[in-house]
Every structure is written in structure tokens, then in C-alpha cells.
Write a protein that binds this DNA or RNA. Structure first.
Lengths: 365, 365
DNA sequence: ATATTTACCGAAAACGGTTTCGTGTTGATA
DNA sequence: TATCAACACGAAACCGTTTTCGGTAAATAT
């Protein structure tokens, strides 16, 4: 037995190198089960089982195979395993944009959790386009991923067409929607309580003695902006302050529109501003400073999204933190649970995270 | 013929629905070539060829098959195709961080180009850790991707250990390194001329009459920071200004260290500051403002990275733009060319992009 | 009428694994 | 000595494609 073992190893080296001699100098391609089986003169099944430490295989053979595999750095081919198991260990993330701080933190959260669970993350950008969202999902839905985590593009939300989501869920592919969601699709969802966020921020401003609080938001089709506006309105009403339409600016998208914001500042009179993102807020602060106003005494500011901008702006910006990273982690967790759950009980849940106020120098503390 | 055709369609409906009746109400799973073949009573090969419009197949059959496939929304399974073709149409992107503006713009560039070419992007984060970088690459290298685009983690650069890259390239997997590269690996590379960037920025400051120009950088193991520092030094010397070590602060990483920067400002005397990123610069501007200094008259600032921060800071920050999106596009283009090239001529190129100065209010214009 | 194309189609191998099931050998038991 | 587990391993199906290689029938040429 020993003799045979010794003999094979020397024989092997010759045969193996021989068969790959062609491009041996430059390339050493991945080794497969078949290669190992051939060189060790056992069957592919045996190799497979040996590597899985199956007790069906003798100690001797297992050691032989495992040593060999280690030596030649054998790693199973993911694609083949995926095909067999019908599990890719990939999750698809489709988001509108990646340059926005919020989304990058969510991705980081997803990545962190998914990676720890052995999953890879395929990122696709819809760039706020309905068509791109559809195309990306179709690409991924043909076997590339085990499930989706996504946030709707603004165009999709404006259009209200969710057939691409429906198709995917009907195929049995799990979906988790976060932040920009729709209630028309049955799936898991993760959001922060944007209305509460708007409420808390507005309340904070009121408590600081502000009475003429302006709002810079986007049109209501964007679910998050709508909710934040509602929180703003509710806070005002709860404190007996009338909602003054002239103090509300609704931009068509989250894109920066310097002219319209500037106009708004010229024509409207206010002592505080709530903005649905940090860019609007920081830009607005700039306008206020230009006008010689003192922040926060003359005019206070609160934005959404706790990004770099808020932290390093001058003055630093008080914001409603959205906890993107946590949101990503939760999304990934919910998705992976669904993916790995055997039972087909279709129960969906919506997790609502609480926003928190991060106090900085754009408000009185 | 016609009769048969009519008959099959009705028969099919019954059979197909029948076989999937089990969970028909909730799920309609993906249809495969085999399904089509079975229902149309032809072979799998015929279906495959018909869908590819092979002229080996009669007009009649092709139409039948194609109509059927369209009706049931057949899409080939990516995994199976990948296994067969040994091409995944995925590219792996391994970067140190995703919350930094520069990297997100690069990803966007990669995504844009790759998507247009039918590729998907798998993003993995090393989080500046050597081990994570290695693990991620190993995960992806087992068949999941056709090639890598990556930027080295700081730990990897500090360690100088590139064996994981070597292994991958030896397996014949194409790699494109961008921004944080190493010359120890033979592969395509894309960088901006950081030395030139540092030079241009410093020269600009000198031309504005600044003589006591400080530098806030990181330790030299970070290739980009080193190059930028060299540009700074060269510009000073070219203009006959001695390099004053007390005006140079080298932090261990790109992470913010408020205390050390504050210390540096207390102890050093300067009329301009060049920073290797925008965060250092904007934070420093804050310190200057606190001290009652006028920007840019008393002290001017230039940073690297043309992000949100630079644009919306107060005053807005003059920066060396790195053109991340372009860098991503070029990286993706180089990689995909390598992936799709048949010939094995191993020629590698390094593309050097020119940085440009974006003038804003932190310098005199 | 026979030989040769041509048009159409199917069987089977291959990609690289996993897994079920069967089988030959061995040693213990009756 | 016949019987039977236990043990160790291999054959083969399978995942869903692609692609090569034949093969059959009709159509054409001889």
C-alpha cells in the first residue's frame, strides 16, 4: 500500500506536468476534479466525496486526495456548483445611483453582511431610469443571482409600473425593497420612518423658536420626499403653525437646481429651512451666508443624510441620519434568510428603522 | 402540417400547465430548452439552433420554436451558458472603500461601460485590509468572473505582498489595476499622473504669491500620496523655494485625524496648504476660519478629488480633479478587450490620465 | 434507375461539479 | 461453508446550455 502510494506521486508529477506542458511556463490553469481523479486513478465521485470528508471514503483515500488537492490548490468551480445546486451565492443590488452617500453606505452594509455569509454582491445602477432598471433586472434574473435588493428609480416611482418586479417575484426570486419602495409588490421591505424624520426635524426647529420654517423637497412621486414632507406638515400643525405654501419648494428631482433654490430664497421669507437632502441644505446655507445672515441665529438648517458634506460643511449641518449601513445589513439579512429558507410560507415583513437627529452647528443647541 | 401545428398548441397548453400545476398559482418558473423541446416534440439541439436562427433548421420549425419561446418568455440560463462557454460576462471590482467619492465615480464609469458591453459588475470591498482583499479575490477567481479591476488596499501596499495578484494572473485571468497600483505585477494599469497633479497645484499656489506652502499627505507607502508629495516637492524646488519639513504633515492613513491636523496648524506657519484629499482640505479650511484667517487671501487651499465636499464647501475648494469616471471607463475597456481578445500576446499597457485643476474660491483667481 | 447533394434534424459529448444507487470485496457470523 | 453486513468505491444521472457529427429523407444529377 505504501509502495503504491509512493509510486503514484512520482508518476503523477510526470503525467500532470506532461499534459500541461504546452503552456506550463506562463499559465497554470485551475485544476478540476477530473484532473485529480485521473492522476490519482480514482473516480470523480470518489474525489468529490473525499474532499467533502464523506465517511463513505476510506481514511487513506481521503488523505491522499485532500493532500493532493491542497498541493495543487484545488477550488471547486463556482459556476458548476451553481448550476448543480441552483444557488449562485450572488445577490443582485439595483439602485438608482452610487454617487449619493446614502446609497453607498447601504451597499457597504449589504456587502458586509453578505460577504460574511459567503455571498457576493452584483451592483447594477438604474441611474434613475425605468428602462435601465428593467434591463438590469432581466439580465440578473436569468440565473445570475439568488435574490434582489433594490431601491426604485425615480422614473419607476413616477410611472408606477412595477411589472418587472412582479415578474421576478412570480418566478420565485426573493426581493427586498429598501428606502424607495412600493406597496404594490408583495415582498420584504426596509425603510426608515421618513415621516417621523421630517417630524422630528421640524419639531426641533420649532422648539428653537423658529416659526417661519421652509421646506425644500421634491415632487411627491418620490416616496421618501413625500413622507418627509408629511412629517413637516404634521409637526407644524401639531404646534399650531399654519402651513404656508409659499414656504415650500418642490423640485422635480433630487438633482441640484441652483437657480430655483436661489429664486426661492429671494422670494420667500423664513427663519429656518428643512431640506430633504444634505446638498440642498448646504447649498442653501451658502446663500444665507452670502446674504449676511447668521446661522443658526437668523436662520437655521436641517437636512437629511448624514454624509461627509454635513459633517465638514461650515457651519456643520444638523441632519436626520438615515442609518444606511444598518439598512443595508438588514436588507441583506432578510434576503438571505428568504433565499436559504426551505419552507415556502410566503410571509413578508416591512422593517421600519427610526431616524435620529444628529445635532450640529446649523441649529441652536 | 397546419393541423398538427394547431393541435400541438392546444395539447401543449394542457401538458405544460399540467406538469406545473403543483405550484402554478403562485409560481411560474423559468422555462428551459428541455421544456420547449418536450412540448414541441423536437430535440433540444433543434430548439437551441432554432433560437439562434441557425440555417440548419427549417423556416417552419424556427418560427414555431421562436414563437413558443417568445410566448413563454424563454431566456437562456446564464449559469449554464457560462459553464459551457467558460465566460461569465461578469467582471470583479475589488476596491478599498466605497464611501469615498473617487471610488464611487470609478465604479460608475466601470458600470457604464461594462453594462453597455453586456457585462455585470461584482463589487467587493477590501476595506483597506489585505486579508479581505485576498479572500475576495479567491472567491471570485473560481469561475465567477472573467477578469478583475482593482485598486490596492493600503495594507497591501504597506505590506508589499502581491502574491494573490500573481496567482490570479498566472491562471490567465486578466487584471486591470487602477489608481493604487504596483509595478511588481505585469498587467494593464490606469492611473492619473499624481505627481503632475501635485506639481500643478503647488505651482498654482506659488504663482499666487504663496511662499510658505504646507502639505498634508499620508505616509509614502500609499502610492498616490507619495507621487503627489513628489510633485509638491518638485514644484517648490523648480521655483527656488526650499522644502521645509516642518510644513509637511504625513498621516498614517487617509482616515481623518482631527487632532493631528489641528496640532499641525498650531505649530506650523503657512500661507497655503495642499492636501492629498478633499476632507483634509475642507477640515483645514474650517480651522483657518476659526482662527479668523481670510481664505484665500491669508491662506489658500487646494485638495485632491473633485467631490461634493469641494463643490459645496464654504468657501468652495479648488481641487485637482482625478476624473474617476473616465478612469473607470478606461479600466473596463482595457479589461474587456483583454477578456475578449483571442490572441495570447501578452502586452500590457499603462494609461496615464492627466489631472486637471478645478479652480474655486479657496484660491485666488 | 442509381448516385449524389441538400435540407433538416437528433444523439451525444462537453462544461465541472453533486448525489443516488449499485456493486465488488472483506470479514464476521451462523 | 454459506450468508450477510459493512466498507469502499464507481457508474451514471443531473443541472441547462452549445456544438459536433452523423443520419435520413427528399431533391437533384447522372
Amino acid at each position: 500500500m505504501l509502495k503504491k502510494s509512493v509510486r503514484y506521486s512520482s508518476v503523477f508529477c510526470f503525467v500532470y506536468f506532461g499534459s500541461y506542458l504546452f503552456n506550463f511556463i506562463t499559465l497554470k490553469p485551475k485544476i478540476t476534479l477530473k484532473d485529480i481523479a485521473r492522476e490519482l486513478e480514482v473516480s470523480i465521485s470518489t474525489v468529490s466525496k473525499a474532499l467533502k470528508n464523506s465517511e463513505e471514503i476510506s481514511r487513506d483515500t481521503k488523505e491522499k486526495v485532500q493532500a493532493f488537492a491542497r498541493l495543487y490548490n484545488y477550488k471547486p468551480n463556482n459556476i458548476a456548483v451553481s448550476l448543480k445546486n441552483k444557488r449562485t451565492k450572488n445577490i443582485g443590488v439595483v439602485i438608482p445611483d452610487i454617487v449619493h452617500h446614502f446609497f453607498t453606505t447601504v451597499i457597504r452594509g449589504i456587502e458586509k453582511y453578505a460577504n460574511a455569509k459567503g455571498y457576493n454582491v452584483i451592483v447594477c445602477l438604474s441611474e434613475e431610469s425605468f428602462d435601465k432598471e428593467v434591463i438590469n433586472m432581466e439580465m440578473l434574473a436569468n440565473g445570475s443571482i439568488d435574490g434582489f435588493i433594490m431601491s426604485l428609480s425615480s422614473e419607476t416611482q413616477a410611472k408606477g409600473d412595477y411589472n418587472h418586479l412582479k415578474e421576478v417575484t412570480e418566478q420565485g426570486i426573493p426581493v427586498v425593497l429598501f428606502d424607495r419602495i412600493t406597496h404594490e409588490i408583495d415582498c420584504d421591505k426596509v425603510v426608515i420612518d421618513d415621516k417621523l424624520g421630517g417630524y422630528l426635524a421640524t419639531k426641533k426647529l420649532i422648539e428653537q423658536g423658529k416659526q417661519r420654517i421652509a421646506l425644500i423637497a421634491t415632487d411627491d412621486y418620490l416616496s421618501v420626499s413625500k413622507a418627509r414632507s408629511q412629517g413637516y406638515t404634521k409637526a407644524l400643525l401639531d404646534h399650531g403653525i399654519p402651513v404656508e405654501p409659499s414656504r415650500i419648494l418642490k423640485l422635480p428631482t433630487m438633482e441640484m437646481d441652483e437657480d430655483r433654490i436661489r429664486d426661492f430664497f429671494e422670494t420667500s421669507d423664513m427663519d429656518a429651512v428643512l431640506c430633504v437632502n444634505e446638498i440642498f441644505a448646504v447649498y442653501s446655507m451658502g446663500l444665507a451666508l452670502e446674504k449676511g445672515l447668521k446661522i443658526p441665529e437668523d436662520i437655521a438648517f436641517i437636512g437629511f443624510t448624514d454624509g461627509l458634506l454635513s459633517k465638514y460643511a461650515h457651519p456643520s449641518l444638523t441632519v436626520v441620519a438615515q442609518h444606511g449601513e444598518r439598512m443595508g445589513e438588514i436588507s441583506a439579512q432578510m434576503l438571505i434568510e428568504k433565499v436559504e429558507s426551505e419552507n415556502e410560507e410566503e410571509t413578508f415583513q416591512t422593517k421600519i428603522l427610526e431616524p435620529t437627529l444628529v445635532l450640529r452647528n446649523s441649529t441652536i443647541n
